[in-house]
């Protein structure tokens, strides 16, 4: 079996030239191995790269289309960037950036230098944190029932009404609670988003996840990525705690994810080669 490198895998760029302590173990799966990461300098840009070794006669596409093998490589991709982001500014590349050799990496970096430097400045000395906001519509509905005068009046009317009328009023009550809940959610999320945006250097909306992905009973109503200056994390967490305290009575819950390499703020496409289609 051949163990010659099949290409040079690039995880992203790093601001400094120091490498964190990384395990000598490789990101290996059955048919492919990412060698321990090394730094590849190209002028004022430094890439974090590994040799990718595909064993034997296995085609690379075959490896990538095997979900279990691809999973392991995705996790290793993240683990490497995660180790670097603890120490320095990192510009993450999308999973799957692979070149023929070091010279091809250097050429591509050189040709996209301006865009890469701009991205590096954008995320300089900052870390991405994810904020997920969930709401329990039951808890919110109960709170609205307690506090809305129109609902209290409707309930009193129901208590006095005959059976047929009470049924109609009950339907109206349910609709009213749903409408009030929607308005409350929109209002609360506006305020929450505003607070988060003001505390972060930049913020971005992420895709809302369905229950089978986030695994909670409550509904996800907001998913944001926040680019937070390094050293300002405690302020950011304090803000989340304050928001949690202010909104928990309305059925809102907050989750923080991260620290992430600033994926959501390095979302650009660059042509690495002049002749590229």
């Amino acid at each position: 079996m051949s163990d010659k490198p099949s290409g040079v895998y690039v995880y992203g760029l790093v601001g400094g030239t120091g490498a964190p302590a990384l395990d000598e173990e490789r990101g290996a799966v059955v048919a492919a191995t990412l060698a321990p990461p090394r730094l590849l300098s190209c002028g004022d840009l430094t890439a974090i790269a590994s040799d990718l070794i595909v064993l034997g006669d296995t085609a690379l596409d075959t490896v990538m289309q095997d979900s279990r093998q691809a999973e392991a490589l995705v996790l290793y991709h993240h683990a490497v960037l995660r180790a670097f982001v603890g120490e320095d500014t990192v510009v993450p590349f999308r999973f799957g950036t692979l070149f023929h050799d070091d010279g091809a990496v250097a050429g591509a970096l050189d040709r996209s230098r301006d865009g890469l430097l701009e991205t590096m400045r954008r995320v300089n000395d900052a870390i991405e944190w994810g904020v997920k906001v969930f709401v329990s519509r039951d808890r919110l509905g109960r709170r609205i029932e307690e506090e809305t005068s129109a609902i209290a009046e409707l309930k009193a009317e129901m208590a006095r009404a005959r059976k047929g009328t009470a049924f109609i009023l009950k339907r109206r009550l349910q609709r009213l609670i749903e409408e009030e809940s929607e308005q409350a959610i929109v209002g609360c999320l506006g305020t929450i988003t505003d607070h988060l945006s003001r505390r972060a250097r930049e913020s971005a909306q992420c895709r809302l996840q369905p229950a089978e992905m986030h695994g909670r009973d409550d509904e996800m109503v907001l998913h944001m990525a926040c680019l937070v200056d390094r050293g300002m994390e405690l302020d950011f967490f304090t803000l989340i705690d304050d928001l949690r305290e202010a909104y928990s009575g309305f059925g809102f819950e907050f989750d923080i994810t991260g620290p992430w390499p600033p994926y959501s703020f390095s979302d650009c496409r660059l042509e690495g080669d002049e002749d590229a289609a």
Partner: peptide, 10 residues
């Protein structure tokens, strides 16, 4: 997400 760097050498 993350930078997409395309090119002939990719």
């Amino acid at each position: 997400k993350g930078v997409v760097l395309w090119g002939e050498a990719t």
